[in-house]
Nucleic acid binder design. Structure first.
Lengths: 124, 124
DNA sequence: GCACTATTTTACCAATAAGTTAAATAACGG
DNA sequence: CCGTTATTTAACTTATTGGTAAAATAGTGC
C-alpha cells in the first residue's frame, strides 16, 4: 500500500463520520466508546475509522488501562494547510485586477503556441 | 450517490494525479490533452479524473471549439480552508500554556464523569 | 460531405473501502 | 482465577474507484 501521506490524509478526511470524530476530538482527548456513541454504527466500524485517521496522521492513540484515548495530532493538519496555502492566492483574489493579470500572464507563458490553429468561430 | 460536497472534495484531493492536475491549473487554464501530457495514463483516465474534480467543485470547464479548457474553481478550495480553519487554533498552539489549559478544560467539560471508576494504577 | 483532432462514453476488470457479525485480546477488580 | 468492560482482529459482503481498450460524439477546415 504505497499511498503517499497526503493522499492518505485527504482520503481520511473524505468521510463525514471521520470528520465528526475529529470535531469531537477538537474538544479534547477521549475514549473509543465515547467517540462511537453518537453513531449508528458498530464498534469495529469505528475502530476501523480510527485506524484510518491514525494512519493518516490526524490522530494519535495512547493507552490508559483498557481505554485507548485518542487525541488530535497537529502534524497532518499542518500538512493539509501547507498544501492548501499554495492555492490561497488563487481564491483570495479580492477583486484585485493585478492578481487576475498575473494569473493570465502565467497562463500565457505556461501554455504557449499549441493553439495557433484557429481561435474562435468568426460569427456563426 | 448522496455524498456530501465536502466529502466529495476531500475525496477528489486524495489522489496524486488529481492534485498534480490542480497544480498545473494553478498556472492557468488549459486543455484536457495538455493536462494529460505529463501522465503515463490513457485519455479516458484523465477525463474521469477531471470529472471527479469538476463534481467536487474544484475545477470548471468551458468549451472552445473541440477543446474543453479547464480552470480552477475557487469555491471548493475556500470550503476546505473554512473547514480547516476550525482546527487552526489547534496546531498553532505556539508553546502557549493557555491554549493547552483551555483545551484540557473543554475536555473535562465534554467528557465528564464516565471515568469515575479508577484513575491510574497506583504504583505497581 | 469527409478526414482529422479533441474529448467523452461504454463495458469491462482488479483492488480498495465501508460496513457487518462473531471471536479474540487486554486490563481491571473482586 | 473469573467475570466484566474496552477494544481489536478475522472473515465476509457489497459498492466504489482507478484503470483499460474500443467506440461514439463534437467541432474544424478543406
Amino acid at each position: 500500500m504505497p499511498t503517499d501521506p497526503l493522499s492518505a490524509t485527504f482520503s481520511a478526511l473524505a468521510d463525514p463520520t471521520r470528520r465528526a470524530i475529529l470535531a469531537r476530538l477538537a474538544l479534547g482527548e477521549t475514549s473509543v466508546s465515547e467517540l462511537a456513541e453518537p453513531f449508528a454504527m458498530s464498534m469495529p466500524a469505528i475502530s476501523k475509522h480510527l485506524k484510518v485517521l491514525e494512519h493518516a496522521g490526524l490522530i494519535a492513540r495512547s493507552r490508559d488501562a483498557q481505554w485507548r484515548p485518542c487525541r488530535l495530532e497537529p502534524a497532518a493538519f499542518k500538512t493539509v494547510d501547507a498544501w492548501l496555502d499554495r492555492y490561497r492566492r488563487f481564491w483570495e483574489a479580492r477583486f484585485d485586477r493585478l492578481d487576475a493579470y498575473l494569473q493570465n500572464l502565467q497562463a500565457a507563458e505556461a501554455a504557449p503556441q499549441k493553439r495557433t490553429r484557429t481561435k474562435k468561430k468568426p460569427s456563426k
